[in-house]
């Protein structure tokens, strides 16, 4: 379980996160919505400890995996080596290749195993980055703008893919400015604005209560 209390973070005197507090349920998919610059990426990076909070706490009692907006695959390594590199440092004796092949196959890019990242399309890089993160067995996956630069059809694939990963017990926090995408994949959406939580909706439970016309997107847009 992820527990955030009073998280504050400033860059150059500008408050990017301003007293953010929430708990995220085990196994759930939490969407982080909000306009550009609202602090979504910063919050994800704080959870991953790529940034340190100025104030407040973030507690998480499991292993996190991080998906960068621009993937950050290692360009001088084949996809297979991208997947195998970190796990083989942890456990030299174990043969990780079989698992890597299975993950690549599940994600539909097994044919790309021996290719270099730059020969892959955006959607394929996304899958490769997801595969690399899954190799370290995270129980919480942090995804920063997983749909950026992808076309509509590929975004539908990403939704199916992330959902199938979630079914294996991996919880997710997904930052995206794309409300349409977020409402399709999340079971809860927290909307940030200028570093504060501006709306927090449970898409599983509260449909009828919250949404005029039963449309979560219209509802959330009021808080943008």
């Amino acid at each position: 379980m992820l527990k955030i209390r009073g998280a504050c973070k400033s860059f150059n005197g500008v408050k990017i996160l301003d007293d953010v507090s929430f708990d995220a349920a085990k196994g759930g998919v939490l969407g982080l919505a909000g306009p550009s610059g609202s602090g979504k990426s910063t919050l994800l990076r704080c959870v991953q400890k790529l940034e340190t909070l100025d104030e407040g706490t973030i507690e998480y009692d499991g292993k996190t995996g991080f998906m960068f907006q621009d993937f950050q695959l290692f360009p001088h390594m084949t996809i297979m080596r991208n997947l195998l590199y970190a796990p083989s440092l942890k456990d030299k004796k174990k043969n990780h290749e079989k698992r890597a092949r299975k993950i690549l196959k599940d994600l539909g890019i097994e044919a790309k195993a021996e290719e270099y990242p730059n020969s892959l399309s955006g959607g394929q890089k996304q899958r490769a980055a997801l595969a690399r993160t899954l190799m370290i067995d995270p129980d919480l996956l942090l995804c920063d703008e997983p749909t950026s630069g992808l076309d509509v059809a590929t975004i539908e694939d990403v939704i199916l893919l992330l959902k199938s990963v979630n079914k294996t017990g991996v919880a997710m926090v997904i930052a995206s400015h794309d409300l349409d995408f977020l409402t399709k994949i999340s079971d809860r959406i927290i909307l940030l604005k200028e570093g504060r939580i501006n709306a927090d909706v449970d898409l599983l439970k509260c449909n009828v209560i919250h949404f005029s016309n039963n449309d979560p997107i219209e509802y959330l847009k009021q808080y943008y």
Partner: peptide, 10 residues
């Protein structure tokens, strides 16, 4: 991000 990716992978 290359440094950060290495870090997130442990």
């Amino acid at each position: 991000g290359q440094f950060e990716a290495a870090r997130t992978l442990g």
